[in-house]
Design a protein around this nucleic acid. Structure first.
Lengths: 297, 297
DNA sequence: TCGGCTATGTTCGAAAATCTCACAGCGGAA
DNA sequence: TTCCGCTGTGAGATTTTCGAACATAGCCGA
């Protein structure tokens, strides 16, 4: 009928960690992605969510294991949790920001091939800022616990708090020696980055180029494909800022015009978080972006 | 200068449990109260908060140990965390509510001496509702994880979501045998409840009675003082609804008029939480309250 | 000035929550 | 059909967290 007078915590509010695991799994749609985000194994996420369902006495997911869907209760719970966890992360970040810390979530390719090589200049200009960088999941446009996200932003994600500091344009590059051998960059083997599988097609659509069938090689990331191109394995369509230095140094050739892309490289400030260091960093990014050579074509 | 590219979770967002411990300690102002609220020892709270300060690199409390004050960073963090944890608790409660669960936080005295004796009737009327009751801290007007709070509400806490189901009036009661011995209820030893230390003075102010000096005995709770009065240890000023049944049964005498108090016994719905069971319970409370005999005087 | 009182901080062993690893089960894709 | 990707589960290990007792510090009344 009714439980006795008790203040036992268990059963009143479920474990916060379990709620966070659920929130990540519900938001990403898969336990594996949630596990990656939380830096644990999928097993841990699965366990937490199961424990949460047991504690609440409500099913949160339904459907076959390979295509889970949120129940109505799960959707309602997710809607309540996401802004709350965002607020907690933002509050914690504000507290930490007292000390000129700046935490950025950066796309791995952008980071390795553009940002990190320039970070020494920022550190020299703003020695007080202690920068901390997190790897941003390729599909993610936000990262809890970071003051801002730095990535290529599509036009539909532009808005307040998003500062484009450098335009984007994509086009094919190739090692000069391989270009000489193949005669035509479009006749060389094509390297494809898994995170931008449609790079060649997009560039061809935009420029009207026709792509003869050639061998393709798949790489997980843009920067792997870039390194492969440097090594002479083939041609690859990449954002201009990531290859500009290599082209200027003669290690890559860009014989064909690049196609401008809407949006661009941008820094996306996390809502609810303010940081003097982020303002300084954004200004520095705009300076660096302005100093980039324009893309060919 | 800057840390390397890493997604390590630790250091990005502090432990949620530590944040919750801080939120409770900052809100209540004391580690001991926070520990009580979280059902842990003060030691655990202290360590969590210390760990949080270390992790954030910011002092959250300052001042002497016996009179801690929040720093500016602590105030900002608290302001961000409280609504977020409220939202999480509300969301979790909504999820649980799918199943006719109803969690109430009740003042211990009200619970023991009024609510619990009547709960059998509620259970008979609404057998589907699974009631869970938590002990509410005497000073608290809200409890995370509960659909509603049931307690005596002062007029300044009335408002939307607060339903007064029974008026309050306070006055002195005494065991009939002791009344016969002492001749005058005001001449008998006075029992005082620590949670309502000014009960006698308030009643005397309201009724114009004069209190001759007599022996006083202190009890921690209203219901302890009530039991003491039943045992013939003295007279005590108590809310009428808590003693009405004993007076009707002749186990206590109420020879002097009671003084009405503004506000009254009320159920305070937790914002953001809806529950069919709570609606039913509130209606039942109003019925029970209407059935109470009026206070003497 | 001296203990009593109250409340926080600390230490260390113990308990509990949580994670990882390994494997099973289940569908869809090749 | 077989492979592949994903989730779920059992057992063991690890990390986190807790509790109890003691140490410490400031207020207060004598």
């Amino acid at each position: 009928m009714f439980e006795n007078l008790t203040a036992e915590r268990s059963g009143v509010t479920p474990s916060l960690n379990a709620l966070r695991a659920f929130e990540a799994m519900a938001r990403t749609g898969r336990a594996t992605l949630a596990a990656e985000e939380l830096c644990v194994t999928h097993s841990a996420v699965s366990r937490q969510v199961k424990a949460l369902e047991r504690g609440l006495g409500v099913a949160l997911f339904s459907g076959p294991k390979h295509a889970l869907r949120l129940t109505a209760a799960g959707q309602d719970l997710l809607a309540g949790l996401t802004p709350a966890f965002d607020a907690i992360a933002a509050a914690a970040l504000r507290a930490r920001s007292q000390t000129d810390d700046l935490t950025l979530a950066v796309n791995a390719s952008t980071s390795v091939k553009w940002l990190i090589p320039r970070l020494g200049r920022f550190a020299a200009a703003r020695p007080a800022v202690r920068l901390r960088m997190l790897e941003l999941a390729p599909y993610a446009y936000g990262q809890r616990g970071a003051h801002a996200v730095v990535r290529i932003v599509r036009p539909e994600h532009l808005g307040p708090g998003v500062t484009v500091f450098m335009p984007n344009a994509i086009g094919p590059v190739i090692a000069p020696q391989l270009l000489a051998e193949a005669g035509d960059i479009l006749a060389a083997p094509r390297l494809v980055a898994g995170t931008h599988a449609h790079g060649w097609a997009e560039w061809a659509d935009a420029t009207g180029a026709r792509l003869p069938p050639v061998q393709e090689r798949i790489f997980a990331h843009l920067h792997f494909a870039l390194d492969a191109a440097l090594a002479g394995l083939g041609a690859v369509v990449l954002p201009w800022p990531l290859v500009a230095d290599e082209v200027a140094a003669g290690r890559l050739a860009a014989p064909l015009p690049f196609a401008p892309r809407e949006g661009g490289f941008a820094v996306m400030a996390t809502p609810g978080v303010e940081s003097r260091a982020l303002v300084q960093f954004t200004a520095w990014l705009k300076d660096e972006g302005a100093a980039m050579a324009p893309a060919p074509g």
